[in-house]
Simulated scan of single mutants.
Amino acid sequence: MQSFQDINTASLLETLVSLVAAFILGGLIGLERQYRQRTAGLRTNVLVALGASIFVDMASSLTGSEGAVRVVAYVVSGIGFLGAGVIMREEGNVRGLNTAATLWCSGAVGACTGAGLVIEAAMGTLFVLAANTLLRPVVDKINSQPLDVQSAEVTNTVYVVTSSERQKEALALLEKELEDLHYPTRDLEVHPFGGENVKIEATLAATSVNGAVMDLIVEHLAALPMVRQAYWSASTTE
């Protein structure tokens, strides 16, 4: 009963304002993500914003601003682990980075509301939405341009996973497949992959390749009986 006797109406009102703001602002960010059918949509972004707001508000009520600052640091790292859960690697491509970054920003918005910085949280929400919407055409425009190989070094790598017993056979077939299509290898590396498998990494000498041709190569390799998995990726460095 002591908890009911210690109720502070003014403090409860501030908490209510913080939670409502976190709910609305996190919902705005989540709506954009839900519309694009991303992994972390409306409910996830709202919950992240609310959770951050609750933690910061609680710390502020118990220990003041110094305690709130310490909790904010833990909230940032905690949401980082949550964001890592939505990042996926599929066939050499990393997906979900933007979704993870958006969750991180939702947490920051929630932390602002928990600290009573509602105006700052609203401003942050607007900039997050702008980054996810207004910058999209710019990114699409840049990605549609041909790669300038003079300003960026491109490395194309083909990966083949096979059993240790059939490593030499798979290696010879990989080299032959690439050379027949005029994509000679610059470097070949073999790494252990699991208990009984190995992963062959064939780095191509060519800096520019035809993506459709590379897709056909890995599709043909993946169909071979000794190949467990085949994919390719391209990376650039400034």
Rank of each mutant, 00 (worst) to 15 (best):
M58Q: 07
V75P: 14
D148W: 00
S53K: 00
M58R: 02
G124Y: 02
R89H: 12
R136T: 13
G78H: 01
T155N: 11
I79P: 15
S65D: 07
A130G: 11
F55C: 11
V118L: 11
C105R: 02
N45Q: 09
Q150L: 01
A73W: 00
E91Y: 02
L126W: 00
L135S: 06
L97P: 15
A49C: 13
F81Q: 07
G83H: 04
G107E: 11
A52K: 05
K141W: 07
N143K: 09
G116T: 10
I79F: 10
A68V: 13
A100N: 08
Y35T: 14
Q34K: 09
T162I: 06
P137Y: 04
T157G: 07
E32W: 00
D140P: 01
A172D: 15
A84D: 09
S60H: 10
T99S: 14
S151W: 01
T133K: 05
M88N: 13
V118D: 14
R95P: 08
E66A: 05
S163R: 07
I79E: 12
R95T: 14
A101G: 14
T99V: 14
R89L: 11
Q145G: 03
L31D: 11
R43C: 08
T133C: 07
K168F: 01
Q150E: 10
G116D: 06
V160N: 06
A130W: 03
L134K: 01
A84G: 15
V109G: 08
E120V: 12
Q34C: 08
T113D: 06
E153I: 05
